Computed example of a mutant assay.
Amino acid sequence: MLLVVLMLATGSYVGFRVLTSDQDQQDAAPPAAGSQATPDPAGTGPSPVEPTAAPVESVPQPAVVDTFPLGREPEGVAVSPDNKTVYVADQNSKDVHFVNAATGTASAVRVPNTPRFLAVSQDGGRLYVSLFENDFTGNGLAVIDTASRKLVKTIRTGPRPFEPAVDAAGRIWVPIHNAGRVEIYDPETLTEDGRITVPPNPHWVVFSPDGRTAYTANHESSQISVIGAEDRLVKRNIKVGRSPHALAVTPDGKQLIVTNYDVDTVEIYDTSDMRQLHKIKVGREPQAVMISTDGVHAYVVNEGTDNMSVVDLKDGKVVSTVGVGDSPRVVAISPDGLRLYVSDGRGQSITVLRTSKE
């Protein structure tokens, strides 16, 4: 698998601590020596989230407004609910960066093993970080308090936890790539609350806006699973294009978007009956996808062509292609819908794009 080759190409890691217990707790260590991040003395965690207005109108061609160096190999990206902080997992180190979205200043929280992907709790108080080494040891989920910037706990998980997600009840769902399952963790006790078996091998999990349905992208089986979020039963497994990597659901819950990494396509499905609406050619090796807050456009980062395809979801076609940094991996959108953040893995940078006329 190309993703595995990419990870192995970064070299081996020396001196990592293998997780040994569900109850393993660590305090955050200082930023790594030589880190490119700079202190952010004003950062105190997310502010209360104000009621949102109507979604901003997205434009068919987002504009790059900034690119800044960060870390050694940025991968997972997430944005706080108040839009003020961008979180970045630096997978060629053991740092998770907290970036002030207004100033670009940053600080780093050290985690026990290599951080890969991120999810933020609904209230913004916690950051969940999947961890594993290139030899698939050190598998875990780091829990960080975003206000104190302290590591609360490290939970041991199955092998190769990928992109976590938080459901409507605050539970953390973690796709376990090498075990063909999703593990679910209770947000209060931070212990495992259940497991769901899916086809090999899950990369991504997303939820419908009403919280009733979960979807997983199962890379090696070229399938997506439709799961009842409450009863935790797999309702359907659907064959899609080769190597589905990431998923996104439109704000109205009517469409599901899938990126097919090995065939350079995006597919759009009607969630009412899982009927395919469109298959769209994009750049090479599409990784992550995000939807504009108005539900009009999908933003697809293409690792193999160092760009982002913008897809009109109604017409099912690419309306623009925007260059980003070297080897883009993950894209996140700010909750206010105004900014996109793309991690440029080999470029060791974050590209910031404006998504509206504002």
Rank of each mutant, 00 (worst) to 15 (best):
P286S: 13
P209D: 09
K94T: 12
R171Y: 10
D186R: 03
H177D: 13
D326Y: 13
V300Q: 06
L151R: 01
G316S: 04
L118D: 03
D27P: 14
V88P: 01
N92F: 07
V263E: 15
A165E: 03
P41Q: 10
T105A: 11
D294L: 03
I350A: 03
G304W: 00
V234N: 01
E230G: 02
N302E: 15
S107F: 13
G283Y: 02
T321I: 12
V86T: 01
V301Y: 04
E50C: 06
G15F: 06
R171V: 02
V77Q: 00
L313T: 05
S148N: 10
E57D: 12
A217L: 05
E163I: 09
V310R: 02
E75L: 14
P187K: 05
G345I: 00
E358I: 07
I257R: 01
I257V: 14
N134L: 13
G11T: 08
V96C: 04
P187W: 06
E285T: 12
P161R: 02
G347H: 07
P209R: 09
H245Y: 11
P74I: 07
P74Q: 05
D210M: 12
S58G: 15
N83V: 00
V266S: 03
Y87E: 00
E192R: 15
R329S: 12
S349W: 01
Y341C: 04
A42R: 14
E303H: 14
V301C: 08
V258C: 04
S80D: 04
H177Q: 12
A165V: 05
R354L: 14
A9D: 13
F16Q: 12
V205S: 02
V296D: 00
P112A: 09
A179T: 15
V263Q: 11
G228K: 08
E303R: 13
T154H: 04
N92M: 10
A101D: 06
Q287Y: 06
Q25H: 12
T52G: 08
I268K: 00
V77M: 03
A37K: 04
D186M: 03
S148A: 13
F162I: 08
P244T: 11
L70Y: 04
A298Y: 00
S272F: 02
P41G: 07
L3C: 08
A288L: 00
A29P: 00
V205E: 01
K279M: 14
E133F: 06
V166P: 06
V258I: 14
K150T: 09
M308K: 13
A119D: 05
V342P: 03
L277I: 15
D326W: 13
M7N: 10
E358L: 13
T52N: 06
